[in-house]
Simulated assay, not measured.
Amino acid sequence: MNSFGETMKLIQRWSWWRQRRRFHPPDEIHRAGELAEQRLAKISRAAGKKNGWHVFESVRIPDAEQGGKREIDLVIVGGNTMLVVEQKHWSGTFEINAEEEFIQHRKNGTTHNHSTVNQRIARKSRMLNAMHNERIGKDDGVDVRVVLAFTNRNLDWPKSVNQLSSEVYDEAGFISVLEDGDPGELNEELLTTVAGFGTWDEVQLNGGLMCKGDVLGLGLGDDVEAWQSARSTPLTAQISHKSGFASMFSSQPSSMELGHGTLRLSASLPYGATMKMHVVGKKAPEEILWSTIEAINLSKPVAYPELGQE
């Protein structure tokens, strides 16, 4: 095991012990939506397996025009068809105004403007298709289908939803598309393009709070960075923290098991070690103490970083 042990002052030991004992409960509001997305991805894989549909969740693509990256909830490839899916797990009712803004009326009496949901996902579909054509050097004639999937049974739809350019389904209707639709012979190049994109990095804090975004640096030293720099698979880690009072006097109260592919690395964590991460919704990157982290799951590196940069 690599050791980062150091002689520590009592006040440092106290601070480190307090950090390890901090509890970060899950964000239940966002967690409900995340669980719904995970559920739809899971049942989509099961429903589409027989007909050869390939399901990718939380696909992130570069946006050269507006900067940063854009997330697509699901991209499903079958034959020469690509389903670009935006899932909404809203409850209550919603209306669509003249500007195609989606106005949700929640059952608790509040409203929320979700802006132009349909236009945004349609734009992402065009960007993704353009990047595929860029990668293979020609127009591949992909059948791009933009889908809005409303998966909460406690949602009433307006009739105007049928006037949108996207295909609109409830959960059962969407699953039927995968179960009943035979997309034909797989376009392997299309599958390769979509599989080459990454997803969110996830950092779970002690207590269950999940931070999603981009990890910009592990902060564990050059040896660890070199060990994981050439990976082509997700990087995972489980962190173990001693939190009993006696652990305040331990020189190595926190340890971790890192892994990518078939490779594994064990390490102890030093006092004050931090990870640099740009969390979704935050204006700037921040430092996250490793002593507050329970687990990480970092996206595989992007296979074609040059796509979509012009």
Rank of each mutant, 00 (worst) to 15 (best):
P158E: 12
Q87I: 12
N97C: 03
R60T: 13
R13H: 04
E57C: 03
R21W: 03
R20S: 08
H132G: 12
T111A: 00
V84S: 10
N108K: 07
V77N: 06
A47N: 07
R135T: 00
H105T: 01
K42H: 12
P26R: 14
E71L: 08
D139K: 13
T110F: 00
T151C: 13
R21M: 05
I72M: 12
M131P: 08
R45I: 00
L35A: 11
E57T: 14
K107Y: 01
F102M: 13
W17S: 13
V59E: 04
I11K: 13
N154T: 08
W14Y: 12
S125N: 03
D139A: 12
Q104T: 09
K107D: 07
W90S: 02
D27K: 09
K124S: 15
T116I: 02
L148Y: 04
Q119C: 01
E99M: 10
L83C: 10
D139Y: 07
T110I: 01
N51D: 02
E37V: 03
R153T: 13
N154H: 14
E37L: 13
N108V: 05
G137M: 05
E95F: 00
L74F: 11
V147G: 07
G92F: 04
V75T: 06
V77E: 08
D143A: 14
N108M: 04
G137A: 05
V117M: 05
R39E: 14
R60A: 06
V144G: 04
S15I: 08
N154W: 09
D143G: 00
W157K: 06
Q119A: 15
V146R: 14
W17N: 05
I103M: 01
E71Y: 08
S44E: 10
H24I: 01
N133Q: 09
E99I: 05
K49I: 00
L83G: 10
R20L: 03
E100A: 09
N129Y: 11
E37W: 03
S15D: 14
E37F: 05
N97Y: 04
L83T: 03
N108Q: 06
Q119H: 10
W17C: 04
P25W: 05
N80T: 12
G109Y: 03
V55G: 07
W90H: 07
M127L: 15
K69M: 12
L128S: 09
G52S: 08
K124Y: 11
V59L: 13
E28Y: 07
W17A: 14
K138N: 07
F150T: 10
R13S: 08
V75R: 03
R70D: 11
D140E: 15
R21Q: 13
T110E: 01
F94S: 06
K107V: 05
